[in-house]
């Protein structure tokens, strides 16, 4: 257990696979920088792997003051046991006050294992992180400069702010796509600290026999325009309207979980709390009621147009343009209008 520590660095676990840096740690670097600046401490990136020293520079360009680099043949493939051992060793040695992970499959596998060893608090799937204070109601004790770990809870119906002030480090995993990736600065300088892994065979209990990657066909995060359909679209066939409109706008197609559960479209297209978070210039929501879980993934879009037959649909509470009508009529009209104008 790490003693209460408010001077340590802010760390980001720099998740990479086969030499390829994940997006989420890069997204996290921007926020880690802000948190660290508020606390007046450096930002550290924790980079584990094999033949990956090129990535250390990348982390510096994205805002790291220090990169803790551990290279070892045993770290080539991610395994919870080996990675947790090495990260715990670094935490014990360098005593960061905050450690952040992307809420990726790997981050969600690794962070709890580390938290358990360190007996530290961990909050899953945060959507926001800030520095703030907390007053303990019973004792009146005031804790300053705490990491406020903000996340949706209870199926997204409430937003909870979680803290931990008794044990250190403060740790959180952060949802993919919710933080804006900073611009890299090629001239930034930082320090690379080399550490040893010291792995034993027991640290590598898994044999990874095979791995297949399916390229993500849809890149919702990069799209400027998204046309999304919900259960109100009515059928897989009607979904062609959505594809049509997206095509003529050069946009991507999104969907609600209900539309996916109904088999109108593949899971890759899901937007929301358990899907992708997007913030395009234009979001057209057709036949979508606007449940909070869906809203969580799209309400930072610059412009939202909602098409719904129900004038009371919750989506109209956060849309910018309200079209009360049948999407099967409205969308073809939009396609026609666009074709005529452009």
């Amino acid at each position: 257990m790490i003693k209460v520590n408010r001077n340590g660095e802010v760390w980001v676990f720099a998740e990479q696979h086969a030499g390829q840096m994940e997006d989420t740690p890069l997204e996290l670097m921007g926020r880690a920088r802000t948190l660290a600046d508020t606390l007046k401490v450096p930002v550290g990136a924790v980079l584990l792997g094999h033949n990956i020293d090129g990535l250390a520079q990348k982390m510096i360009q994205f805002g790291a003051d220090k990169v803790y680099l551990v290279e070892d043949a045993g770290l080539k493939d991610y395994q919870a046991t080996s990675y947790a051992k090495v990260v715990c060793h670094l935490i014990e040695k360098f005593e960061p006050q905050i450690v952040l992970y992307g809420a990726t499959v790997t981050g969600r596998d690794l962070a709890p294992r580390i938290a358990s060893t360190m007996k530290a608090g961990l909050t899953a799937d945060c959507t926001d992180l800030r520095i703030g204070e907390h007053k303990v109601t019973k004792t009146g004790e005031l804790h300053e400069n705490l990491l406020l770990q903000i996340r949706p809870a209870f199926g997204g119906n409430i937003i909870a702010t979680i803290i931990n002030y008794e044990r250190w480090p403060q740790m959180a995993t952060v949802r993919e796509g919710v933080m804006v990736m900073p611009q890299p600065h090629t001239t930034r300088v930082g320090e690379v600290i080399h550490e040893k892994a010291n792995l034993t065979p027991e640290d590598l209990p898994l044999e990874i026999l095979e791995e297949f990657k399916t390229e993500r066909k849809v890149n919702l995060k990069a799209a400027n325009i998204i046309v999304a359909g919900g259960a109100g679209v009515g059928s897989r066939d009607n979904f062609k309207n959505i594809w049509n409109l997206a095509n003529c706008l050069g946009g991507a197609v999104g969907a609600t979980r209900a539309a996916i559960d109904l088999g109108y479209i593949d899971h890759d297209h899901q937007i929301g709390q358990t899907g992708t978070t997007v913030r395009p210039k234009l979001y057209i929501a057709a036949g979508i009621s606007g449940a909070i879980q869906h809203q969580a993934g799209m309400d930072e879009s610059q412009k939202i147009i909602a098409i719904n037959t129900d004038p009371e649909a919750p989506i109209f509470c956060y849309a910018h343009y309200k079209i009360v009508g049948d999407l099967n009529m409205v969308i073809p009209m939009m396609v026609k209008a666009i074709r005529e104008k452009i």
Binding site: K119, A120, G121, L122, T123, G132, H134, L146, L148, Q149, P152, A153, G156, N157, I158, I159, A160, T161, I162, I163, N164, Y165, E166, R167, I292, Q295, P314, C317, Y318
Partner: peptide, 14 residues
């Protein structure tokens, strides 16, 4: 170690 600092309900601001 984790404690709740606060809970807010999600309000849809028009």
């Amino acid at each position: 170690p984790t404690k709740v600092n606060r809970i807010q309900s999600v309000v849809l601001a028009a």
